[in-house]
Amino acid sequence: MAPPILLLKTRSSPNDGYDDYFSANNYTPTFVPVLEHRFHTSNLAHVRELFASGAFNLEAKNAKPTQINTNEDAVVPSKRYGGMIFTSQRAVEGFAHMIEEHELPSTPSIPLYTVGPATARTLTTLRDKYLPTSTIHGADTGTGENLAYMMLDHYNDLQETGTSANSSTSLHPAPKPGLLFLVGEQRRDIIPKTLMDPTLPDSKRIDVHEIVVYETGEMDSFETDFKTHVQGYNGEESMWVVVFSPSGCEAMLRVLQLGPFATAATATAAEDGSKRKVFVATIGPTTRDHLRNKFGFEPDVCAEKPNPEGVAEGIRRFMAGLDN
């Protein structure tokens, strides 16, 4: 029987790399959503208007004015954009939802920047269907900071090689088009800070315009849903719980009776891994440190790489250690 693995995340659409990988490697993956994502339909409608207005058509001389109302209640005039940035699968899904509901009024050929293989896979599916001549870059950068430095080189190189297409005249070149960044309500600012760093020379600086297209909150039903899955576990095989963010950690520990919620029985089992049947892995050090610092709980595995292969390798090494 394939060992069960509970993935504390929403299954990505249209495909999920964790589902594909673990299903193909003799596991039984089950998704238990922790976070609820709500799309900002009005802001996504404004994104569509940018495509309709010609904001991504770098040869358009008279783009129709459009105003963007962001979560900060700021009204920003329309600009010309040379590409887009996606650092979360939810942003890609929100963009795809808008296209599927209302279609895309134009299909420009632009660079699409992303971070991490999972988001890149989701973006590739969208690109192949709706923006077939666009290109995807940054899938292997791993962090927003690495992606930002990559864009400083890559995007500026694209603009330099395409100068003739982006210039009004040789004496009066048009301003370098900026990048449109679709983000969630909660996000780090490392990318816009790096690209718009005032210490950079004007020729290197890249304008970034953020539009909030979704917000995230912990699902009220998560603890109950997770408890149902755990209670349905027969205990014959080792079960793994993979945690993807600090959200939901307290409920997870409470259900599993670990950390500050440990009983005498679970505390004894925690000291002797050979007696345990349920193990915990984190997608990376941020979630691991949250469990350590807030709850005094040490997860069994912290993936060295935030992807399905990294999680699976960490699990394999841990289980091999128990057998020795």
Rank of each mutant, 00 (worst) to 15 (best):
E223Y: 03
D323R: 13
L58A: 09
E223F: 03
V92Q: 09
D202P: 09
L131P: 02
N307D: 14
S78F: 02
Y21A: 12
R11P: 04
L322M: 10
H154E: 06
S221Y: 07
E218Y: 00
T194H: 08
I191N: 06
E218Q: 10
S12M: 04
H97V: 00
P198R: 04
T263A: 02
A45R: 10
D19P: 00
V301E: 04
T122W: 00
M319C: 10
F261H: 11
R292H: 13
R292N: 09
F279A: 00
H102L: 10
S221F: 04
E237A: 09
T28N: 12
N62W: 03
T199I: 05
D189Y: 01
D197G: 14
A303H: 03
M219C: 03
L8W: 01
A270S: 15
T87L: 07
A63C: 08
R317A: 11
N62Q: 12
V34A: 09
N71Q: 12
M319D: 12
L112N: 03
T286A: 15
F297S: 00
F261E: 09
P306E: 04
E313R: 12
Q186F: 10
G321F: 10
L258H: 02
G273R: 08
L171N: 10
N156I: 02
E100F: 04
A74Q: 14
T107K: 15
L131A: 06
T87E: 08
E103A: 15
Y113E: 07
T169L: 08
D289S: 02
F261T: 08
K129Q: 10
P77Y: 08
A60V: 09
F95S: 01
Q67R: 06
P260R: 07
G184E: 14
D16C: 14
M84Q: 05
M1H: 11
S245T: 03
V230Y: 11
F261W: 13
A165H: 11
T141W: 00
V241R: 02
I190H: 01
R317G: 01
L322Q: 08
V208K: 06
H46R: 11
L291E: 04
G259T: 06
A24V: 02
P175N: 11
P14E: 01
V183Y: 05
T124C: 05
L158H: 07
A262F: 04
V230N: 07
G321R: 15
T125Y: 01
F261V: 10
G273Q: 06
